[in-house]
Amino acid sequence: MKKSIISIAILGAMSNVAFAQSNVTIYGIVDAGIVSERGGKAGSVTKVTSGVGSASRLGFKGTEDLGGGLNAVFVLESGIKADTGESDVAGSIANRQSYVGLKSATAGSLTLGRQYTPYYNTLSQVADPFAAGLAGSAKNLFPVAGNNTRTSNAVVYATPSLNGFSGEASYALGEQSGDNSASRQMGLSVGYANGPLTARAAYNSRNNDTTVPAVNTGMGHNTLLAVNYDFKVAKAFFAYGRDKGQFGSPKQIDSNEILVGATAPVGAAGTLMASFIRKNDKLVSNQDADQWAVGYSHALSKRTSTYVAYAKIKNKNGATYTVGNNSEVGTGDKAFNVGVKHSF
């Protein structure tokens, strides 16, 4: 009995030594709201849904100190539907993010797996006062659907911040049999952040060809310039996007976008958000669209907040853009949201 106790103690001590420099965190967001949509082909839709402000998720992330300022890092993150308890992608385990790599404070990070594109990071982190969520999400008119948000089989390098400057480069292998260029995607961003000013430029290029089945749809190119400036009494946002080639849903060929917006603190816990986005279709059909949006978020604590938002899209010349939110594309040209979000 005494030998068994000693053995267990030794194993416990060895375990503590082996994992002393490792850190694993369980994290997530549970976001659910009531969404009321109008102006769609199916008529009015009112529902309880998940991920209105931020997509509901469950994730695991970790670091291990390898010595010399070098760390191993990983993230496994799965999307969930808070309204039903289901996975937001059937049959998937870590559909949102799944990567592993190395990170150094002086040399930057190199990661491999399923990751966000530099283009989407620029839109959600710098350009959009709604942070790509709620009815006012810039995703309603900017081309970030599908692979423009995140890519699988990606190698991503991010530089450390040097006097406020930083950069990110992404290369996603298409892995199409017989054609290494098919479905290949590349991204790049360069940014500057200092005090109240944040500015970033991003570029995204995707070869939309596939080999099984064999389909040639050419290249899609997206460029984005985003700037925000914090005046303390309000934070101003501006973004300009330029798009060429086959991309997005609805399918687009040649267009640009302009966003102007602002956020303003309301008391100690509230934030007011507003934005205007103009989509300029440069083809003969001229299917333009404008979006107006306003929203309010109120922090009940450091982890829990409530929100309300409204947005309206004016489609022109047969355009079919819809008012969605962070997790859904929406069904109509008007939408109202109210809900609650908890982070852990």
Results as ranks from 00 to 15, higher is better:
Ser170Thr: 12
Tyr171Gly: 00
Ala172Arg: 14
Glu175His: 07
Gln176Cys: 02
Gln176Gly: 04
Gln176Asp: 00
Ser177Cys: 03
Asp179Tyr: 03
Ser181Lys: 14
Ser181Glu: 13
Ala182Phe: 05
Ala182His: 08
Ser183Ile: 01
Arg184Met: 11
Arg184Ile: 05
Met186Phe: 06
Met186Leu: 10
Gly187Trp: 14
Leu188Glu: 04
Leu188Asn: 02
Ser189Val: 01
Ser189Glu: 11
Gly191Val: 03
Ala193Met: 08
Asn194His: 13
Pro196Glu: 14
Pro196Tyr: 13
Thr198Val: 11
Thr198Gln: 12
Ala201Lys: 07
Ala201Tyr: 15
Ala202Asn: 09
Ala202Tyr: 14
Ala202Pro: 11
Tyr203Pro: 07
Tyr203Cys: 11
Ser205Gly: 10
Arg206Ala: 03
Asn207Val: 02
Asn208Ile: 03
Asn208Asp: 02
Asp209Gly: 03
Pro213Asp: 01
Pro213Ser: 11
Pro213Leu: 13
Pro213Met: 09
Val215Gly: 03
Val215Lys: 07
Asn216Glu: 09
Asn216Tyr: 06
Asn216Lys: 05
Gly218Val: 05
Met219Lys: 08
Gly220Val: 05
Gly220Cys: 05
Gly220Asn: 04
Asn222Arg: 06
Asn222Asp: 12
Asn222Cys: 01
Leu224Tyr: 13
Val227Leu: 12
Asn228Lys: 03
Tyr229Cys: 08
Asp230Ser: 06
Asp230Arg: 06
Phe231Gln: 15
Val233Ser: 11
Val233Phe: 09
Val233Met: 10
Ala234Lys: 08
Lys235Asp: 07
Ala236His: 12
Ala236Asn: 12
Ala236Trp: 12
Ala236Leu: 15
Ala236Cys: 14
Phe237Tyr: 12
Phe237Ala: 00
Phe237Cys: 02
Phe238Met: 07
Phe238Trp: 04
Phe238Tyr: 09
Ala239Ser: 07
Tyr240Ile: 08
Gly241Tyr: 14
Gly241Asp: 15
Arg242Glu: 00
Asp243Leu: 14
Lys244Gly: 00
Lys244Val: 11
Lys244Glu: 00
Gln246Trp: 00
Gln246Asp: 06
Phe247Gln: 14
Phe247Val: 09
Phe247Asp: 01
Gly248Met: 03
Ser249Glu: 03
Pro250Val: 08
Gln252Lys: 13
Gln252Ser: 14
Ile253Pro: 04
Asp254Pro: 02
Ser255Tyr: 09
Asn256Met: 08
Asn256Asp: 11
Asn256Ala: 11
Ile258Asp: 12
Leu259Ile: 09
Val260Ile: 15
Val260Lys: 09
Val260Leu: 15
Val260Thr: 12
Gly261Asp: 10
Gly261Met: 13
Gly261Ala: 13
Ala262Asp: 02
Thr263Ile: 03
Pro265Asp: 08
Pro265Leu: 14
Val266Asp: 04
Val266Gly: 09
Ala268His: 03
Ala269Ile: 05
Ala269Trp: 08
Ala269Val: 07
Ala269Asn: 12
